[in-house]
């Protein structure tokens, strides 16, 4: 349901609400550091429709559905987010139960993302020993993206330098060189990237080619805006729509219970 009174929200709020709607009750949601949109999205989904979700932050596993507020942390590595943990996934045996990660949902960014959803956190340049831009490193993404049931690429920018034809280095394998069996051919069990969400639009991956395909543009954004900001020829879905705006209820819960300090509004 749309409320005409909701017309004043930021693009990050729009992205968080859109992402929250993709998450299903029972999902195990793992969010890394410095990803405020997914951090807000998992909390919003947990409150609104996910009483059986598990939130995994900084190695701590929690279900906090009953809490009045699930505020975003003040800063990355704010250890206080683990205060409601029921257990720790890093108690000396991280990665020991990857066979069950099909229940997990993961979120990833990158310094480059290519048309097949491969992502790069290593750096930009030709020579690995002398990179033009040294990235932060792969964190746990090579392993997580190989095994989780599905994952979402979430970007803070949408530029031709970020969304490129081919990554200089790949730290997380998405759909490789394309095709629905790209992962299966390498024996990679996880379900792969599902969507790429940016400040301009949402893209999915075409069923036959696994090329990134424009699925919806955010309100006020044109298809040409997206094409101009993308470093590869973008397929356009024949079901292209405008991204649905947040409902009054979603925005109210987001602002009052998840993001009271306005991290997504600054």
């Amino acid at each position: 349901m749309r409320y005409s009174s909701v017309d004043n929200f930021t693009v990050q709020e729009l992205m968080a609400v859109f992402l929250a709607r993709q998450l299903k009750d029972g999902d195990h949601l793992q969010v890394g550091v410095a990803l405020p949109v997914p951090e807000a999205a998992v909390r919003l989904a947990h409150i609104m429709h996910g009483p059986n979700m598990e939130l995994i932050f900084l190695g701590a596993r929690m279900n906090v559905h009953q809490l009045e507020q699930l505020p975003l942390p003040e800063f990355g590595w704010d250890n206080r987010v683990v205060r409601w943990a029921e257990s720790y996934s890093d108690r000396g045996h991280r990665f020991d139960q990857v066979k069950d990660w099909y229940r997990r949902v993961f979120f990833i960014g990158g310094v480059q993302v290519d048309r097949f959803g491969n992502t790069n956190l290593i750096g930009i340049g030709n020579d690995h020993q002398r990179l033009d831009f040294r990235g932060p490193g792969s964190v746990g993404t090579a392993t997580l993206t190989a095994h989780v049931g599905r994952y979402y690429i979430v970007l803070n920018n949408h530029t031709p330098r970020l969304l490129v034809e081919k990554c200089d280095f790949i730290s997380a394998f998405g759909w490789g060189d394309g095709g629905p069996d790209a992962r299966k051919r390498l024996g990679i069990p996880g379900g792969g990237p599902q969507l790429c969400i940016t400040p301009l639009c949402v893209m999915d991956f075409a069923e036959d080619t696994k090329c990134m395909r424009l699925m919806s543009v955010h309100p006020g954004v044109t298809v040409d805006d997206v094409k101009d900001a993308t470093g590869f020829p973008l397929e356009i879905s024949d079901k292209l729509t405008t991204t649905k705006i947040p409902s009054l209820e979603e925005l109210t819960i987001l602002r009052s219970r998840v993001d009271p300090h306005g991290s997504l509004r600054s």
Partner: peptide
């Protein structure tokens, strides 16, 4: 042996 990293640039760099 490990599976994470198969298909990536890790073994190249």
């Amino acid at each position: 042996p490990w599976r994470g990293g198969v298909g990536t640039s890790l073994p190249e760099v």
